[in-house]
Amino acid sequence: MKNHTIQQLIYELVSKLFVFPIYKFVFKGHLIGRENIPQTDSFIMVSNHGSLLDPPLLGHALGRNISFMAKAELFKIPFLGFIITACGAYPVKRGIADKNTIKTACKKLSDNNSIGIFIDGTRQKNGRVNKPKQGAALLAFKNQKLLLPVAIVNSHRLIRFKFCIPLFSKIVIKVGKPVQPPQSSSRDDLHSVTMLLKDKINNLIG
């Protein structure tokens, strides 16, 4: 309990001092669908992925301490590594297939901590969900947790340059209605829920 409290304090400090000004003033961040965010039980947030800044921006916007699976290399990047560590991110080698990652995710969910998964497993140049993995659906079944589809719009083109002048895109985060976990761990059930999440996220993106 003590470690959880300390982690929560660190998260709130980093979120307010570092992430908030970037989200609100640099990228003019805006959240749509706050009423769809579960407020009591933990959940699995599933999102598209276009930028290294997605984890802290999403966690801050949703107002929940969401632990993200992040590539181990990201923890070595100055500043970004500090932020994602403070926000509860944990390293993953190759997506959800890593057994240690699955154990860590299940432990966090059982401790009532929400987790975040980028359903494609890596950044997409078009900012949409293209080839989703079934890991999120499998975790939802194993832990009987709701899946929360979230779209982060424009994250794949956060910064553009015009005549060497940086132009910052407006970030819009859209939260869809939660999706129930699969009825079983069969390939068909996992595929069905995964495709439903893909469609919901891409529809939110527009």
Results as ranks from 00 to 15, higher is better:
Leu58Asp: 03
Leu58Cys: 05
Lys28Glu: 10
Lys108Thr: 00
Lys177Arg: 13
Ser192Pro: 08
Asn48Gln: 03
Cys87Gln: 15
Arg187Phe: 00
Ile173Thr: 00
Thr101Asn: 08
Asn130Trp: 09
Phe68Asn: 03
Lys177Ser: 12
Ile201Tyr: 00
Asn36Tyr: 09
Ile159Val: 14
Ser169Lys: 04
Ala136Phe: 11
Phe43Trp: 08
Ser186Gly: 11
His156Met: 13
Val153Ala: 10
Asn36Thr: 08
Phe43Val: 08
Lys170Cys: 03
Arg128Gln: 10
Leu62Lys: 05
Ser169Arg: 06
Ile83Ser: 02
Gly116Thr: 02
Leu158Thr: 03
Ile32Val: 12
Gly121Gln: 04
Lys108Trp: 02
Ser192Glu: 12
Ser186Leu: 00
Leu158Gln: 07
Asn65Thr: 11
Asn126Pro: 09
Lys2Val: 14
Thr194Trp: 07
Met69Gly: 04
Asn113Ile: 01
Asp120Lys: 11
Leu139Gln: 09
Ile10Cys: 06
Gly63Gln: 00
His4Ser: 10
Gly29Trp: 07
Ser184Ile: 01
Ile77Asp: 08
Val129Cys: 02
Asp41Arg: 14
Asp199Tyr: 11
Lys16Gln: 14
Ile205Lys: 08
Pro55Glu: 05
Lys24Pro: 10
Gly33Thr: 04
Arg94Tyr: 09
Ala61Met: 03
Asn3Phe: 10
Asn36His: 09
Lys145Met: 06
Leu17Trp: 12
Ala89Gly: 07
Thr85Pro: 11
Val172Asp: 10
Ser184Met: 02
Ile205Tyr: 07
Ile44Met: 00
Ile115Leu: 08
Cys106Gln: 13
Ile37Met: 06
Ser67Cys: 12
Tyr23Trp: 03
Gly88Cys: 07
Asn203Phe: 09
Ser51Phe: 08
Thr122Tyr: 04
Lys103Cys: 01
Asn65Glu: 13
Gln180Glu: 13
Asn113Gln: 10
Pro132Trp: 06
Leu196Cys: 13
Gly50Asn: 05
Lys71Thr: 06
Phe43Leu: 06
Lys71Leu: 01
Gly63Asn: 02
Gly63His: 03
Ile22Lys: 05
Leu147Met: 10
Leu147Gln: 13
Leu146Ser: 15
Gln124Gly: 11
Ile201Ser: 00
Cys164His: 15
Asp54Thr: 01
Leu158Asp: 07
Leu109Ile: 00
Tyr23Leu: 04
Thr40Ala: 05
Pro78Thr: 07
Thr40Ile: 09
Ile159Lys: 13
Ile152Leu: 14
Leu196Ala: 12
Phe75Asn: 04
Val172Lys: 14
Arg128Tyr: 05
Asn65Met: 13
Arg157Asn: 15
Gly135Thr: 03
Val153Gly: 10
Arg157Tyr: 11
Lys93Trp: 08
